[in-house]
Design a protein around this nucleic acid. Structure first.
Lengths: 214, 214
DNA sequence: GACTCGAGTTACCGTAAGTAACACATGTTG
DNA sequence: CAACATGTGTTACTTACGGTAACTCGAGTC
């Protein structure tokens, strides 16, 4: 076993893994999240046990698949988040980037977030619960880091930044999910509305009946 | 078939259904969300087909179970939301009510939100995707109604209220989920931090480096 | 006493996750 | 060159679950 050979073997293994992941991606996007391991193996031109050798179990495959997309999304978001612009602009750009991503590839999004919906019947499907959370958690922690880095929150800033990070990510996620389903307005309107919310407009506007005291 | 008899039969049917639901509740809380229909039937002292006669399929049972808890939670939240107090107080009370609920019964919460996590292995589990969303959607719509009712948002108020409703619910949900897992601070601190976020403190605080213009 | 009817059971099907055991090539070593 | 180790692939199986069909039993009704 000289070094070159092992290296070549390893490279080929990783390449194979990538091929398998791409095949899985195709199947998942076509058949929805209920795609069976058999179907994925067939798409890859191989059979089940190989998938299990590479990914352990279905959760492993899912995790690997999710990581690809999550990493890509995080890269886009970081770019918007770290841009040299005013805070409001950065916030709007980040929101818009996220929404554009889920708008462009709703199937990927639904796979990451609601992996059980694709199938027509109550088929088992991936057990998303353990995997969709990590995506949101990663987003939240990432945002928290940026907030803590960029904004002066005084003492307890770490904690406050994390609360805000997770809260803002959750807001973006829930609003995006609802918007993607109903499309009640344009993307830019949604972005503006959410930014307005973050900018405290809820606290500023007047009550509908009676004075602001009621 | 006189009336009294039919009534009695119906009552008994509904009573049975309630018993089954309570059995299902016990099992789900004990075995986690991966509880099988067999296990639930066994806990109820009967066998599978009866469950299917009552609830159609697993999704039906889940939906019925979720509705019970969701309705209860919504009632609590409505009380906090409709209280005659200042807006900030109402917001804080609502956040606190939600967080108190998920803190008091985390198992119920995890079942409603992350139904696939309970099992040790990658067991099929309930397909939450189609059912956890409705809970958040209902919360979001409910909140939107209150906002549109209580606050004067000018034209487009309906739409803005819905965006905000879903956004705020998502913020509450994500932050609560993270908090429940890590418990990084007390409940009241979390409430205050989130309310601060909604009150526009993110827009108000200064940048950490350089002037506010950067 | 025959008859309906609803509650319940057993026994089964289909499907999908996951595994064990076998087959084949290929390069390595005595 | 024969024996062998290794990575790659297969077939065939087990297990578990959701869901259903067909039968049974008991209670009330004409």
């Amino acid at each position: 076993m000289d070094t070159t050979q092992r290296t070549e073997q390893q490279r080929s293994a990783e390449q194979r893994r990538r091929e398998l992941l791409e095949a899985a991606d195709r199947v998942v996007l076509r058949d929805g999240p209920g795609a069976s391991m058999n179907a994925i193996a067939a798409e890859a031109g191989i059979t089940k046990p190989i998938l299990y050798r590479h990914f352990g179990d279905k959760g492993g495959l899912y995790a690997a698949l999710a990581k690809r997309h999550t990493d890509a999304l995080l890269d886009s978001l970081r770019a918007a988040l770290d841009a040299p612009a005013e805070r409001r602009e950065r916030v709007e750009a980040t929101l818009d980037t996220y929404l554009a991503a889920i708008e462009l590839r709703p199937q990927v999004y639904r796979f990451l977030m609601h992996p059980a919906e694709g199938s027509s019947a109550g088929e088992p499907g991936f057990d998303v619960g353990r995997h969709s959370a990590p995506l949101l958690r990663r987003l939240g922690e990432e945002l928290a880091k940026v907030i803590a880095d960029r904004v002066d929150l005084g003492p307890e800033s770490q904690q406050l930044a994390r609360v805000w990070g997770h809260g803002i990510v959750g807001m973006m996620h829930a609003a995006g999910d609802w918007w993607l389903g109903e499309r009640p307005c344009s993307r830019s309107e949604l972005v503006r509305s959410l930014a307005d919310l973050l900018w405290g407009r809820l606290a500023a506007v007047a009550d509908r009946v009676g004075g602001p005291g009621f």
